[in-house]
Nucleic acid binder design. Structure first.
Length: 486
DNA sequence: ATGTAC
């Protein structure tokens, strides 16, 4: 007997197995929805706008396969955060800025040190102080008067991380460990507005606010010894995770193109269940312009994470000595649209995959992977909340077959920011975090309140689901020691 | 996520 449960108004979810729920095609939906969740997580998801958004995305022109929700899915602008959807250019498929998100190429990178966590000893507070001094964090924060020249901005937008390495903001070996080698080649700086460029000029190498962070941690548990060794992540290894995106520049690109796309949507007579799904057929010039600008903003985000990496390296060298050298394990994008080849309805096709709050998770052997990791599969990084865990996984054949080569991207919000702030009222958050053994540096109490552990689902539950569903393979768990927030 | 509305 098929188990059905009530979802958001007018929608029902049908249980497929212990970690999959089908949202059957109805109304203007052109394909089914598919949500990955276990019995506990689906209770947090089922009656939310996120389910409605999975259905809405399934209504867009040229959508193929299924509209997918990861176990960390929650409400977002137009498309859900934790959503994946692919569009076929030959079937009127579209690109939608809301399917990428305001923070274009928000993503995470993981660095490893040759040190063990115990080597850090009493240095952690000083390390955190230096990082906090050196790296601007918080809403609107940048390097102030230190502005890149417009000419450098245009090169950076076109060339991505390779530019960063050329100007001393990285090491040549870093490039192979960044998704796309840190550069989306179609980037078109001319499609990025002057205003967006101005907003980014002093923000290269900055954390931002919200869920962005720099975290010192260590490998707390290993599930696959061989894979962990290949990634340099043996138990006790001291690590650094950097989570940030394209800051004001990407935000402005999204704003600019939402205006354009709303006009295009009207002109093409595309009927949308939600205005926030504004989009344009992939064949039209506005879509090409958005893709060029989005790719440029993505390159900005890769450079941003790369520049912070170099700052972290300087601080580690100053505090712990030159031997504390940081190597890049991998850098993944969480918010991006890309053309990729996938098997759809029994046929290989080039489709535009939108991942919004989802990680690419290519399987072993995929030609896009760096040679030395190709046999392993793509590293997938899942940061959790500030006080619990983060995970390192690997992409799988299952993900390639079922989710356009995608996996979850984190814990996923459980409380809205407003609810989280309310929950934090009257509490001594610094004392609580100190009690939890986390050395926190933050520019705003409000950010810390919004980011409390209880505002998030338990990332371990998310990882259980993706591992059980076969769309990710567990390698290691990390534990936070120190966190720098906006 | 975001100079949370030029």
């Amino acid at each position: 007997m098929v188990k059905r449960i009530e979802a958001a108004e007018g929608l029902e979810l049908e249980r497929l197995d212990s970690c999959r729920w089908r949202l059957p095609r109805q109304g203007r939906m052109q394909v089914d929805g598919l949500i990955f969740a276990n019995d506990a997580l689906i209770e947090d998801i089922r009656d939310t706008e996120a389910v409605r958004q999975v259905a809405n995305v399934a209504c867009l022109p040229g959508v193929v396969g299924r509209s997918i929700g990861m176990p960390d899915i929650h409400w977002g602008f137009g498309f859900p955060i934790g959503g994946v959807a692919a569009f076929d250019p030959d079937q009127g498929g579209v690109i939608s800025p809301g399917g990428v998100g305001y923070d274009i190429n928000c993503g995470v990178r993981l660095l490893r040190t040759p040190l063990q966590a115990e080597d850090l000893g009493a240095h952690l507070p000083r390390l955190m102080d230096r990082l906090f001094e050196r790296i601007p964090a918080g809403m609107g924060r940048g390097y102030g008067d230190t502005l890149l020249r417009n000419r450098d901005m245009r090169r950076l937008l076109r060339e991505g991380a390779a530019w960063a390495v050329e100007v001393g903001l990285g090491e040549p070996e870093d490039l192979a460990r960044i998704e796309d080698r840190g550069c989306l080649p179609g980037a078109d700086p001319e499609a990025v507005s002057d205003r967006a460029i101005q907003r980014g000029r002093d923000q290269v190498g900055t954390v931002g606010s919200g869920n962005h962070f720099i975290e010192i941690g260590c490998v707390d548990d290993v599930y696959d010894e061989a894979a962990a060794r290949r990634l340099g992540l043996e138990a006790g290894t001291l690590t650094v995770m950097i989570h940030s995106g394209s800051r004001g520049l990407g935000h402005q690109v999204c704003d600019d193109f939402l205006v354009t796309m709303e006009r295009i949507t009207g002109r093409n007579g595309i009927e949308l269940p939600d205005r926030q799904l504004a989009c344009a057929p992939l064949s039209c010039s506005a879509a090409r312009d958005y893709l060029g600008a989005m790719q440029a903003a993505a390159n900005f985000a890769y450079v941003n994470r790369q520049a912070m990496t170099q700052q972290v390296r300087r601080v580690f060298a100053e505090v712990l000595g030159e031997e504390a050298h940081l190597e890049l394990v991998y850098d993944v994008s969480h918010n991006i649209a890309k053309f990729e080849r996938h098997r759809v309805d029994g046929e290989e096709r080039e489709v535009c995959v939108h991942r919004k709050g989802a990680t690419r998770a290519f399987p072993p052997g995929h030609p896009e992977l760096p040679e030395d990791l190709r046999g392993l599969g793509q590293p997938v990084l899942l940061p959790g909340d500030m006080t619990r865990y983060s995970y390192v996984l690997l992409g799988t054949q299952g993900a390639y077959a079922e989710t356009f080569g995608s996996c979850a991207h984190g814990a996923g919000r459980r409380l809205s920011r407003r609810q989280a702030k309310r929950a934090a009222e009257g509490r001594d958050l610094d004392a609580e975090l100190a009690e939890a053994g986390i050395e926190v540096r933050a520019s705003s109490r409000q950010t810390v309140a919004e980011e409390l552990a209880e505002a998030y689902k338990d990332v371990s539950d998310v990882v259980d689901v993706v591992a059980h569903a076969g769309i990710g393979r567990r390698v290691a768990r990390l534990r936070p020691l120190g966190v720098l927030k906006g």
